[in-house]
Design a protein around this nucleic acid. Structure first.
Lengths: 336, 336
DNA sequence: GTGAAAGCGCTAACAG
DNA sequence: CTGTTAGCGCTTTCAC
């Protein structure tokens, strides 16, 4: 392991001088500079970032905690992709810790990142209850941003998308196509995204005067497989709906498959819609009608807030935009 | 920032004692231990990992470099998921650096990870040429494993899958179903996966005596969109094939869409197959016939090799297993 | 301009 | 069992 001292000796100068030419802060004579560069070359020296960060007390890393339950689905890659992109755009590195399957492990992951002296941490929490997360954030020496959830106690430490409004948009569209009895396949509990979407569905149905909404609700866990089974469960209770809204595209895809296996046509017999605007939605038949979620914008916000680059004054949450494709059809009223 | 010294003072002991109770290595009197724990509690002390790693010269991080071109597709999430899993299984953390779009950036990412003193680094290289990567690896102070590529110069620093053999398996299957003129949609250049798969396709076609194979080759870039366009390009030259083999599932999905848009039925008119065993393949219609790739095993190997946990003596590469679903159909010889 | 020395927060001998 | 003393590799005053 060649250190700065080795370089200094090799160049016949002091450690500080090497440090200076490396950081370009102070002025160093050109010929000495050359000497140092030559020594660096010869020794194959590479600065130790741990030591550097310890000495400067500043870090160029931003941490991301994500539960592996989220690893599937388009959300994950889009999120990581954008997180890395915006970090690097501001000369930071994304470092990633697995939140695994429990609140405790999520907290360990946060702790690791904080103790690694990250400049900030983004947390896509799946298990830590919001109040506890708020507590962790408020006690943290570095900025922590909660992703995709509201934090009423700490509104500035959370970036989120208005999933309630997004779901309303989708419900409005479905209704505009003539659908009234709309089934809903929910995601996992603990998910703020699902909670909001489901609530909007419920409220819309209530407003429409649809009764027995329980019979229109099925449980999924975000996976395609679960969407498939949820749709089957819906049949089991008799098909009393003309459309299915799934809490994400993966489950919508699963539901469509179940419908087809049942000999039903989409959207002729049953319409299906999802959320996320997964890439694959364009390439399946029928192409999936969905809601595009502005993840990129959310992440950008989180990163820039961590680095105090902008304190987005308008805290207006985005809600996504409707992507109309083929999986939702018109339903004539005479069908009633 | 509360340090170990603060804790020591608060507990009325020395720094080393605090260090001892924290690391549990040496023996400390129970009552002193209690004192220290109390002080830690009171001060809210959290050990600084940078300092710790600097002092011990050992790290519990394993780095992963991945180019963001790979971010899409099932490969990415599966790979990251498993990398994190196996790292944590051996008490290490996965840290991730973006290789972005060029060889230089990939090298920077490796450099960052090495200088962060990771215990080892895994590189899914997209741009660094193999010889150069081998050079980097051989000069590195920490173990570096190349993912998904052969390194003839450094066979022990690469884990890979036998994509040639995998492609052969798929071609054999296609032929067994009666297909002879099989088109191929290739992935990006620079990809060892594609190179091997394409070569097997070429060789099998040659062995079959199929001439003008150029007319059966279309260029994609791994994305669904590109698969769509590639299939269109194939038509443009006249449809002289009965099956399309795509270098991954995403492109296969795109191709199927293009076929359908052209009024063609899959697999009745044209059969389609891919590679990767993407989750969605089960849920589309027709369900996609594909090759399941043992990514998990590959990553496990990489991680365990980095940690010298096992030096897998049998360096036999896995090649994946065929997953027969619906997108490939029988072709009767009379069609000739 | 450049070097010496102190210090970042921690661990690891070495005494006692 | 516990405190003292050196470092780990780098940055950063402060003199010269």
């Amino acid at each position: 392991m060649v250190t700065m001292l080795d370089v200094a000796r090799c160049a016949g100068v002091s450690k500080s001088t090497v440090s200076r030419v490396l950081n370009g802060k102070d002025v160093v004579r050109e010929e000495v500079k050359a000497l140092v560069y030559k020594a660096i070359e010869e020794t194959g020296y590479r600065p130790n970032l741990l030591a550097q960060q310890l000495a400067t007390k500043k870090s160029s890393m931003i941490g991301l905690v994500m539960t592996n339950a989220v690893y599937n689905g388009p959300f994950f890659s889009t999120l990581v992709y954008n997180a890395a992109k915006f970090c690097e755009a501001h000369n930071h590195r994304l470092i990633f810790a697995d939140g695994k399957q429990s609140a405790e492990e999520e907290m360990n992951a946060i702790d690791f990142l904080v103790r690694m002296k990250c400049a900030g941490v983004m947390v896509y929490a799946r298990h830590i209850p919001a109040p506890q997360l708020a507590k962790i954030i408020s006690e943290s020496p570095v900025p922590i941003m909660a992703l995709n959830q509201r934090l009423s106690a700490l509104p500035d430490n959370a970036v989120f998308i208005d999933h309630y409004r997004g779901s309303e948009i989708m419900m409005d569209y479905l209704q505009a196509q003539g659908h009234r009895r709309i089934a809903y396949i929910r995601g996992n509990m603990l998910s703020p995204s699902n909670t909001a979407r489901q609530q909007a569905w419920q409220d819309k149905l209530n407003a429409l005067g649809v009764k027995d909404t329980d019979a229109l609700l099925a449980q999924g866990d975000w996976s395609m497989e679960s969407g498939y089974r949820a749709a089957q469960a819906l049949f089991a209770q008799g098909r009393t709906f003309s459309a299915i809204l799934a809490a994400n595209d993966d489950m919508a895809l699963g539901a469509i498959k179940a419908l087809k296996d049942q000999g039903l046509a989409v959207p002729e017999d049953v319409s299906v819609a999802g959320f996320d605007n997964a890439k694959v939605g364009r390439f399946v038949s029928p192409a999936l009608t969905t809601l595009d979620i502005p993840i990129e914008h959310m992440i950008q916000n989180a990163v820039e807030r961590i680095l105090s680059i902008k304190n987005d004054p308008a805290r207006a949450a985005l809600c996504g935009t409707l992507v109309v494709r083929e999986s939702v059809g018109q339903r004539c009223l005479s069908e009633d």
